[in-house]
Simulated assay, not measured.
Amino acid sequence: MSKKHPIIAVTGSSGAGAEPVMTAFTHLFWRQKVKPVVVQGDGFHRYNREEMKAAVALAASRGHALTHYGPEGNLLEKLEATFREYGESGSGEHRQYLHCTADASQYHQDPGTFTPWESFPKETDLLFYQGLHGGFVSPELDIARHVDLLIGVTPIVNLEWIQKINRDACERGYSREAIMHSILERMPDYVNHITPQFSRTHINFQRVPVVDTSNPFIARDVPNLDESFMVIRFRSPKGVDFPYLQRMIKDSFMSRPNAIVLPAGKAMLAMEIIFLPMLDELMKKRHG
């Protein structure tokens, strides 16, 4: 952690639906005149698409699975070094993974490749990370310790799968069979490396649908926000003004001393209300 160069990390698995959190922070950064450097976790994958296919096949021939959820599929040492360097000096470097043709065409590259590594812009106020491993900890690495505000996005697992299937089929052109195979292949790494991070987060956002999602592999539509509740869990309720949140967010209620539940359609409003004082506190420490 660093008062001078703070880090905010949003962590969640593929298909978790972190976009509302990113949008809420984009609004706050603009309103509060905060200049972030945005780092995408996909840029720290170890292999491009073709290399990953070869590495997965080799791992399978040796009797184990290689996935983007586990450390073997990522440059987690470089990610931790990047967080450390930014906290110490406000510098570092990142790259982008180009998922689809639309992204790749902007760089005149093929989908499934990386842009070149490039240095962070000078004089940024904070680092904003979104990816799979913002709260990762192992015997060799501790990425979470560098993060000032760690946020988890973790819908119930059937909804997460529905969102992933819908996104990967519609936006990335994968078949449902390939997506289901990917989900099954990733399960051990999901259990061992993704879910433990949500016990380290400062805040978790968990969307819970109130429609039938019992078979996510045949669902035709992603449950919308009006068909869901959002459970927001704070690791420490100290300093959180829950009565104020309940007054500001219609139909919200407390389910536990550290958790508030609200209609998911109000989630964006709730995020901006919750994150604003936290962002202001980080900036106050930075300039103090």
Rank of each mutant, 00 (worst) to 15 (best):
P216E: 15
W117S: 06
L149K: 01
F114N: 00
P277M: 04
G131W: 05
H68A: 09
G135V: 06
G70F: 00
D103E: 12
G173S: 13
Y244W: 13
D241Q: 10
P263Q: 08
L159K: 11
K78A: 14
K3E: 13
R176T: 14
A219L: 04
V208M: 08
Y47R: 04
E272K: 03
G173A: 08
P209Y: 07
V210T: 15
F275M: 12
E140M: 03
N215E: 13
R200S: 07
V240W: 07
Q106V: 11
M22Q: 09
M187D: 12
Q32A: 02
L98W: 00
N215D: 15
A60I: 03
P139R: 07
P209D: 12
N215L: 02
V56C: 08
G90Y: 11
K285F: 03
R220T: 14
T201Q: 02
L76A: 10
E123I: 05
L76P: 14
A169E: 08
H108I: 01
I7G: 13
D251E: 11
L76H: 12
R49V: 02
E123F: 10
K266P: 10
A144T: 02
R46S: 13
I260K: 04
M283Y: 00
H287Y: 15
G131E: 03
I151K: 08
G265K: 10
L126I: 08
K78Q: 09
T154S: 09
F217I: 13
C100G: 05
D42V: 02
E272F: 00
S89K: 15
G87S: 11
A270L: 04
Y174T: 00
L75I: 02
L132R: 05
S228D: 14
A65Y: 12
H193P: 13
F242S: 12
M22N: 05
E171P: 05
D226Q: 14
N192R: 11
S236F: 02
S89V: 08
K3N: 14
E85W: 04
I183T: 01
